[in-house]
Write a protein that binds this DNA or RNA. Structure first.
Lengths: 164, 164
DNA sequence: TGACGACCATCAGAACTCTGATTAGTCTCT
DNA sequence: AGAGACTAATCAGAGTTCTGATGGTCGTCA
């Protein structure tokens, strides 16, 4: 019945034009990213942070006084999203925002002492997750994974469907 | 000054315990997943669907009458999230929900004619994105990528930090 | 100088996503 | 039959994320 199975599959593909979820690369990517998100979330939660809040604090600690727009670019989110994240961080007393002395329209953001403390606490556990991840691969394997992901990225960002 | 660079890096690592964002595998995964999400979103948008709505309709079309809880498992979201998605789909007239004849507590969900039409329209473009993705890799490369992602997954789900 | 474009910040609205909690039906085992 | 476990559905609340729109500021270039 191998032939029948083949025919059925071919007909299904041609008629319905459907690919099952499991055979799609995107499903694998989504699941893994979701698990990573869950692991990081559990890691930073004891510090009272969410993952995006942790990311924002992380960048702020390296570059205090950065603008919200620049922060958004570093954290791979839109400025609107960053506004929301900063609002929550500020009301928790983890950051403070002051107008830029020269550019009046720019607001400088920097972590408070409490913010740095929360970041330290969160980073210990978050970095442990990343280290564990890194330890699961040889240098060569990690490079291969990065290269393949870059290929995915390139394939997606040059996709003509986005322009139609 | 190679030695100096090495020392500086080592000190930074030991004192701050920080890994920069760019060297983290998680960043690559997040960015790629985000791009994939954006591509799919653009693909299904002309049909008036969001990506989660498309995923739900897709599974519903294959298995009409499935319960919301089962649907949530297939789509990799929580039942609460699926409730939200189904509420939006129902108010758009793309699905209909009727009580199960035997199990009174279960509600059967199935796509309407309009739902199937939207799915067809969305799937043409969404499948094109996946096909383009698949075409960017040889069979062997795709297998390698899947295998490496599975290793990431395994590393994450067995992480002891989640139990502490 | 004045117009235009680029950029910053933010509001508004919508969707998705989670955790936590509640309510209720089904099943199993005693 | 009844207790306990499991599952289904959903509400409540919070956070993140997007698109779209608004208003203000800065710099450049005619």
């Amino acid at each position: 019945m191998v032939v029948n199975a083949y025919i059925i599959d071919a007909v299904r593909t041609m008629v319905l034009m459907r690919m099952s979820f499991e055979e799609r690369l995107g499903s694998h990517l989504k699941r893994v990213e979701q698990e990573l998100q869950a692991a990081k979330s559990a890691a930073v939660k004891p510090a009272g942070l969410t993952v995006p809040q942790y990311a924002a604090l992380f960048v702020l600690d390296e570059q205090p006084g950065i603008s919200a727009a620049e922060l958004a670019r570093r954290c791979l989110v839109t400025p609107q999203t960053m506004t929301t994240i900063l609002r929550n961080l500020e009301s928790a007393g983890l950051i403070e925002r002051t107008p830029h002395p020269l550019h009046k329209h720019v607001i400088e953001t920097r972590p408070t002492a409490a913010g740095r403390k929360a970041l330290d606490q969160a980073d210990k556990r978050a970095a442990a997750v990343e280290r564990r991840l890194a330890a699961a691969f040889s240098e060569e394997e990690a490079d291969t994974l990065r290269a393949l992901l870059a290929r995915v990225s390139e394939s997606l960002t040059t996709d003509p469907i986005l322009k139609s």
